[in-house]
């Protein structure tokens, strides 16, 4: 069974890399690169997992995450947040907003793969 991941990211090359990694593991990868309507897109696509960048055009990843958590449908959707800002305050803000996993760029490919697998597993266990 194929799992569905939605990658919200605006850097073409990073999109390319993650798409490559996850496709090889059998994931169906969709991407979206604008922050403004990201939450709506996620609700429509109903992915199993979301990978979310912080610095997006239009709306920050934190705001999108809060929006997701506030909505019943996406309240416990697994979200992996990636940021290049690398300040400890960002991790706190992400955790406050209800992130599932948080990673700093540049990331290790293995770590991303493991995180995505774990999140899916934990989510399946819970539901």
């Amino acid at each position: 069974m194929s799992h569905h991941v939605l990658l919200v990211e605006d850097e073409t090359n990073i999109i390319e890399a993650i798409r490559f990694l996850l496709s090889r593991e059998g994931w169906q990868v969709d991407t979206h690169s604008n922050g403004t309507d990201a939450a709506e897109v996620i609700r429509n696509m109903k992915p199993d997992i979301v990978i979310l960048d912080v610095m997006l055009p239009g709306k920050s990843g934190f705001d999108i995450l809060e929006e997701l958590r506030a909505h019943e449908q996406t309240a416990d959707l697994p979200v992996l947040m990636l940021t290049a800002r690398g300040q400890s305050r960002d991790r706190e803000m992400a955790e406050k907003a209800g992130v599932s996993r948080f990673m700093t760029k540049p990331f290790s490919n293995t770590e991303v793969l493991n995180a995505v697998r774990d999140m899916l597993y934990v989510h399946r266990q819970q539901s």
Partner: peptide, 11 residues
Amino acid sequence: LRTPMTSIRAF
């Protein structure tokens, strides 16, 4: 700095 580095590391 980290954004190009991310692509470089990943690829």
